[in-house]
Design a protein around this nucleic acid. Structure first.
Lengths: 298, 298
DNA sequence: CATAATGATTGAGCTCAACTAAATCATGAT
DNA sequence: ATCATGATTTAGTTGAGCTCAATCATTATG
């Protein structure tokens, strides 16, 4: 006979007793009511004691159940409070920022050294994901999101506009003249990501007349398109901010200087009141100073 | 971010901090040290805080870890104590008795109503099994065992002698005369359980001279033999105590009054000191009163 | 100094406790 | 009579928790 029953069952019991409802307990714990019912049944069986009287549509604690709950409520409260206190302390110095993998790879990570040097007391963690992460659920302090801005219940500031330019390797650009006509693109492989309208819009804006905008391989995301382009497969439309460093050091070339302004931009997004926390305010200020810098990271 | 980390990880942390050793914690929780290491790593990651300083071959709590442990130790102690108290109370009124399925079916269960009426405060649970159950491991309070008595480390009292009598259906008995000679059994099907010597011993004791004791179907246990006999397949040697009710109401007949005393008997077996517990003493007294009753249960 | 012992860590793979989905049941409300 | 509500149960699924074995970093011992 183990000293403690299933901790999961104890958690289910504590929540059900607090709510006097298995359905509400299930909601709180993000499981189904059936799971709660099973856990409590198993707990009663292992203890050999009835903890709840089942009534149609409601629960009542037995005498035994009420006494057990009094202690369990305290135990779980202690654990929650200790965990929250520890998290609070750790959160003073730990920031979690979420953005897309492309932005993290091309823009943010190359600049992180500068942030660490300026603010060594702040532990900045990057959560790179295409998924729209939830601030509370996922423990996110601040987000950089690509879109039109305006997210319900959240503060949003436009951080970084961007434009798309055709980018390729120097070897591929060498086959072009020093100021090539746009229609020379008809002889190159156009690399697409899933947003295939980008090339079409760019060619239209550039005044190309005999280039088939839909021709060429398609990749599932911008990173795939980037790597194919770096491998010399063709020419890709990239965000200028992502390839600033490579354009500067000549490992990539933008043979056509025309940029296509994007209606989408990068926005800094955070819960209301988040800036009252100094570390978040510091990060925000640093991000805005970075976007106004003209030199890419060393 | 959930309010509580993995409860399993909290348990691993509390045990490791108490022992300042993951190996000892693993032993206590009956898992491998690797499992503990992983759990604590995950806990530290989810909290964003280092809880232990790893030293070669030993652990030290960080300041954060020590504070967290102070609360967790209390929480887990509360849970253990509340669980033990509840189990103790439940054991005050819950008794678990183990015996064979045959004894449970034929002797004990038909009499249980009388026990419940006499002692409604005692919750008697029957664990019917052929397996020799362990008092501590299996949570058994008292046993009725079939054998010669004398079990090491346990108290044992002879409860119920028994004798074997040939039993069959009234229809089968009608084919016999009112006081049939024993050798009439040569014309009936003898039903055996795995202890095949029973019929041989009975026939010898009864003085039968031309009945083949080994002839007839064999069943793996007494219940199988009983059911075959009830179905009219033949005549079986049954313990008189098991079929008292059916003999009384005429649904079974014992055409040959000779009983074969068995060297095996039913013994009441319990750990030393168990009778200090009132509920066990009550059950024991009731069992002995039942065996001395001459009338079967209603 | 070399080797053995000790205890924590880690990666790959396994497994079963925890859970889901859906059907059912027992009311209570309309 | 029908619908709503909440608990229960069964059969099936799955990922958190775990194992195993190799590795690492000492420390102890001969």
């Amino acid at each position: 006979m183990d000293q403690l029953p299933s901790l999961s069952a104890l958690r289910a019991f504590e929540a059900s007793a607090r709510h006097l409802s298995m359905t509400l307990a299930a909601n709180e714990l993000h499981v189904t009511p059936g799971a709660i019912s099973l856990q409590i049944r198993d707990l009663e069986s292992s203890l050999g004691v009835r903890l709840f009287e089942r009534r149609p549509r409601s629960l009542a604690l037995t005498t035994d159940g009420a006494e057990y709950f009094a202690t369990m409520r305290t135990a779980f409260r202690l654990m929650r409070e200790a965990t929250a206190a520890l998290a609070m302390r750790s959160k003073d110095t730990v920031l979690t920022l979420t953005c897309t993998a492309g932005f993290a790879t091309h823009w943010l990570v190359p600049r992180l050294r500068r942030f660490e040097e300026a603010h060594p007391d702040i532990d900045l963690r990057i959560s790179a994901s295409h998924r729209m992460m939830d601030f509370h659920r996922d423990g996110i302090d601040i987000a950089i999101r690509h879109g039109l801005g305006g997210y319900e219940g959240l503060a949003s500031e436009r951080l970084l506009d961007d434009e798309y330019v055709p980018v390729c390797t120097p070897e591929m650009a060498a086959a072009l003249s020093s100021s090539p006509a746009v229609d020379a693109l008809a002889n190159l492989t156009l690399i697409h990501d899933v947003y295939r309208r980008d090339w079409e819009l760019w060619l239209q804006a550039a005044g190309a007349t005999c280039v088939d905008a839909m021709r060429g391989p398609v990749f599932t995301d911008g990173m795939g398109a980037y790597h194919a382009m770096k491998a010399g497969l063709g020419i890709a439309l990239m965000r200028r901010s992502f390839v600033e460093q490579e354009l500067a050091d000549g490992t990539l070339v933008a043979p056509f200087p025309i940029g296509l302004a994007s209606a989408f931009a990068y926005h800094l997004v955070y819960p209301p009141g988040a800036l009252e926390r100094p570390a978040i305010a510091t990060l925000r200020a640093w991000l805005f100073s970075e976007v106004s810098r003209t030199t890419p990271p060393a």
